[in-house]
Design a protein around this nucleic acid. Structure first.
Ligand SMILES: NC(=O)c1ccc[n+]([C@@H]2O[C@H](COP(=O)([O-])OP(=O)(O)OC[C@H]3O[C@@H](n4cnc5c(N)ncnc54)[C@H](O)[C@@H]3O)[C@@H](O)[C@H]2O)c1
Ligand SMILES: NC(=O)c1ccc[n+]([C@@H]2O[C@H](COP(=O)([O-])OP(=O)(O)OC[C@H]3O[C@@H](n4cnc5c(N)ncnc54)[C@H](O)[C@@H]3O)[C@@H](O)[C@H]2O)c1
Lengths: 255, 255
DNA sequence: AGCCGCTTGTGAACGCACGCACAAAGTTGC
DNA sequence: GCAACTTTGTGCGTGCGTTCACAAGCGGCT
């Protein structure tokens, strides 16, 4: 709780420090995974062109992204895979583990709790919570399900910094409040509701219904275009320009 | 955009599908859900301010979003809930159902297959696929799991337009290719790989590891900020509405 | 009827992000 | 040691997305 207003939009002087664009941060995570794969394959170095192609981005964009974290490339050669991997990890704060608490061990929660991709990437699932008495006490992947009322104590004990909410929508806000009280700094929300949180808490939302609806929109748009059979009308300014709409991940959504 | 001089203000046909910004489309889905809830609560009308607050966006942005689909508001009053709900549905192409095929019925796939939120929102899960002989043939939520080799036939029979991939990463590209051959137009990918698809196919990716890593970055940045020195210019210019960091959903990622 | 208050719809400014294109910097080959 | 080639890092123009601010429109009240 430093200073709520903060009031530094102009930044100016402080601008020189690392204010990495949101979009870049998300892509860094993608580069990171590809670098891990390249390392496994024994690659020593990789050029921006190669890495860009492999991750589906423009090479200039990739270089600019990397330039935000420093100049770790070697001109005429590329980037040293191991070194770059390390630098991105450090930038994203992955050099230290972040304990995750998962609330709501239903259908989705079970899948998440058993997913090895979290612990394997530095996000060990350190605690599970639910209200269902049939679930409290069972073990999933070696972790016991605790009652939601113990969120504060358990999260504090295990140093949880990130919470994941996989409860039904109506319960999400209440669960969120408890996680916040427990000192959780970030929340990944799977429930289809807009969470209210204090300013210092960061929330990201995974909303599959929204994903599908965005896809449905594109189907509809395509059908509308194809409808009149008149193909390839160059006069159609844009709207369907370069074909491969790789507009993936979700767009920036309300929390 | 696209308002050269003036020229054709006189009505003309419904060109409603004209180039709605990606970001807007995603938010329309969020508004839609909230409108559904409001309708259930018996609300007749809602103002842009109310709807904006409820969905965590700026009211001006909301009005501009809605203006892309037409002028359905009533000045001095607001928007008629039922009417607006209907218009958004129509714009997103939700007035007709989109059959979904899910490939990979493992941990995550099971949860997705059993999720009622899809069918309830116009996206019935019409087919399930896997390669595991122990899974092929079983029923989940009344749908039988078919073998991946039958993707083309089954998808064609059931008019599948959207595919969801929940297989391990290494199998994703191959599965994707088969879905594309089967005529699927859009793919929602949960596997942590970058898919290669022909231009007419739209891919969106849900990457939880990326979500967590972006959150981790914010934790790290906050820690660095608290350590004084670096001022931490919030790259998220806005987002701090109620002081809430609503930077959610994922940023635009590579497919 | 006419005025008043409320809310929409949008013009305009701003800022971020993307991608091009190129100079700088390094490597390889002779 | 020099020339030719490769690749990085980035300045810059462009376009999209967000926000402000306000005129226009609508309903209600007197
Ligand atoms: N299942 C999916 O594939 C899927 C997909 C997208 C979104 N979601 C969303 O994820 C959430 C969970 O979905 P699900 O299918 O796992 O539902 P579910 O009903 O199977 O599981 C919900 C779990 O939350 C627990 N719970 C309820 N209230 C709680 C509370 N106050 N505190 C703690 N735990 C509580 C329940 O006991 C249950 O175990 C829902 O919001 C759903 O919309 C699910
Ligand atoms: N479980 C999670 O919570 C979670 C979270 C995020 C991402 N993911 C990703 O989702 C994917 C699935 O995860 P999971 O935990 O369900 O894995 P899983 O191993 O439990 O399930 C994978 C399923 O895919 C099937 N499969 C394998 N190859 C196939 C092929 N060629 N064609 C069709 N089916 C095939 C397997 O038989 C299995 O049933 C993975 O890519 C994983 O990284 C999972």
């Amino acid at each position: 709780m430093t200073s709520p207003p903060q009031a530094d939009p102009s930044g100016s002087a402080a601008k020189l420090v690392r204010s990495i664009p949101e979009a870049t941060v998300a892509r860094l995570a993608v580069y990171l995974r590809m670098l891990g794969e390249l390392a496994e394959q024994g690659a020593e170095t990789v050029s921006s062109e190669e890495l860009a192609t492999a991750t589906g981005v423009n090479s200039a964009k990739l270089r600019k992204d990397l330039s935000y974290i420093g100049s770790y490339g070697i001109r005429g050669v590329g980037y040293e895979v191991a070194s770059l991997h390390h630098q991105i990890e450090r930038t994203l704060g992955l050099d230290r583990q972040q304990a995750v608490a998962l609330v709501g061990v239903g259908n989705l929660g079970h899948a998440l709790a058993g997913y090895s991709g979290f612990g394997g990437r530095g996000f060990p699932v350190a605690a599970l919570f639910d209200v269902d008495p049939d679930l409290v006490g069972i073990h999933i992947n070696g972790i016991v399900v605790e009652h939601v009322r113990d969120i504060p104590r358990v999260c504090a004990e295990r140093g949880v910094t990130i919470g994941m909410i996989a409860t039904p929508g109506p319960a999400a806000q209440s669960v969120c409040d408890q996680l916040v009280r427990a000192g959780v700094q970030c929340i990944l929300n799977f429930a289809p509701v807009v969470l209210q949180v204090p300013e210092q808490v960061e929330v990201r939302k995974v909303d599959l219904a929204v994903e599908l609806q965005v896809l449905a929109f594109h189907v509809a748009r395509r059908r509308a275009g194809d409808a009149s059979d008149t193909v390839v009308a160059p006069s159609v300014a844009n709207g369907v320009r370069d074909g491969v709409h790789v507009t993936n991940g979700s767009a920036v959504l309300p929390r």
